[in-house]
Simulated scan of single mutants.
Amino acid sequence: MKSLIFFLQVNVEQKLKEAPDNQYQIGVLIGSFIPFIVLAGIAYALYYRAKKKEKKLK
């Protein structure tokens, strides 16, 4: 797990300073948010499945 966290750490500020143009900057920002969006989606799906199973058991 520790290696996964290290893998996800990216110095966004440095990449933005070295960006060749604005389109690259937008891509870096979007790319830095994608892992969080995916994790939030997975968490919501697991929560929804758990709530659905809970209702079936009642």
Results as ranks from 00 to 15, higher is better:
residue 17 K to N: 10
residue 33 F to S: 10
residue 7 F to N: 07
residue 9 Q to R: 07
residue 18 E to W: 01
residue 6 F to Y: 05
residue 7 F to C: 09
residue 8 L to N: 07
residue 45 A to E: 08
residue 46 L to A: 06
residue 46 L to R: 05
residue 29 L to E: 01
residue 58 K to Q: 15
residue 22 N to I: 11
residue 26 I to H: 04
residue 40 A to Q: 02
residue 17 K to Y: 06
residue 1 M to G: 12
residue 20 P to L: 12
residue 37 I to V: 14
residue 44 Y to A: 10
residue 58 K to H: 11
residue 38 V to H: 05
residue 19 A to R: 00
residue 23 Q to N: 13
residue 7 F to S: 11
residue 12 V to E: 04
residue 17 K to I: 06
residue 28 V to R: 00
residue 4 L to W: 14
residue 38 V to C: 09
residue 45 A to N: 09
residue 29 L to S: 01
residue 29 L to R: 03
residue 10 V to E: 12
residue 57 L to G: 12
residue 27 G to Y: 02
residue 54 E to K: 12
residue 12 V to D: 01
residue 46 L to N: 06
residue 13 E to P: 00
residue 44 Y to V: 11
residue 52 K to Y: 12
residue 15 K to S: 01
residue 50 A to Y: 14
residue 14 Q to A: 14
residue 29 L to Q: 02
residue 15 K to M: 05
residue 52 K to E: 10
residue 2 K to E: 15
residue 23 Q to R: 09
residue 50 A to P: 09
residue 20 P to E: 13
residue 40 A to D: 03
residue 48 Y to L: 08
residue 47 Y to W: 11
residue 36 F to G: 13
residue 58 K to L: 11
residue 13 E to Q: 11
residue 32 S to D: 08
residue 11 N to Q: 03
residue 11 N to L: 02
residue 32 S to G: 03
residue 14 Q to C: 06
residue 55 K to A: 14
residue 53 K to R: 11
residue 22 N to Y: 09
residue 2 K to A: 07
residue 41 G to A: 11
residue 4 L to I: 10
residue 3 S to Y: 09
residue 12 V to H: 01
residue 54 E to C: 01
residue 13 E to K: 07
residue 31 G to V: 03
residue 56 K to C: 05
residue 47 Y to P: 03
residue 47 Y to V: 15
residue 46 L to P: 04
residue 43 A to L: 12
residue 54 E to A: 09
residue 6 F to W: 04
residue 13 E to W: 07
residue 45 A to Q: 08
residue 19 A to H: 00
residue 45 A to Y: 14
residue 27 G to W: 02
residue 28 V to F: 07
residue 31 G to K: 00
residue 31 G to Q: 00
residue 21 D to M: 03
residue 47 Y to C: 09
residue 3 S to C: 10
residue 56 K to Y: 10
residue 33 F to Q: 10
residue 44 Y to C: 08
residue 12 V to S: 01
residue 15 K to P: 00
residue 17 K to M: 05
residue 21 D to N: 11
residue 56 K to W: 09
residue 39 L to H: 02
residue 31 G to P: 00
residue 35 P to I: 02
residue 39 L to R: 05
residue 19 A to Y: 03
residue 42 I to K: 05
residue 48 Y to Q: 04
residue 36 F to H: 08
residue 14 Q to N: 10
residue 45 A to L: 10
residue 25 Q to H: 04
residue 33 F to M: 12
residue 8 L to V: 06
residue 14 Q to S: 13
residue 50 A to H: 10
residue 46 L to V: 07
residue 44 Y to R: 02
residue 6 F to C: 13
residue 56 K to Q: 15
residue 11 N to F: 03
residue 7 F to Q: 06
residue 51 K to M: 10
residue 53 K to T: 08
residue 50 A to C: 04
residue 2 K to D: 15
residue 2 K to M: 09
residue 13 E to G: 10
residue 33 F to I: 07
residue 56 K to G: 08
residue 10 V to Q: 12
residue 36 F to W: 08
residue 10 V to N: 08
residue 34 I to V: 14
residue 24 Y to S: 02
residue 55 K to N: 09
residue 54 E to D: 09
residue 2 K to H: 14
residue 28 V to D: 00
residue 3 S to Q: 13
residue 17 K to F: 05
residue 6 F to N: 12
residue 3 S to R: 12
residue 1 M to H: 15
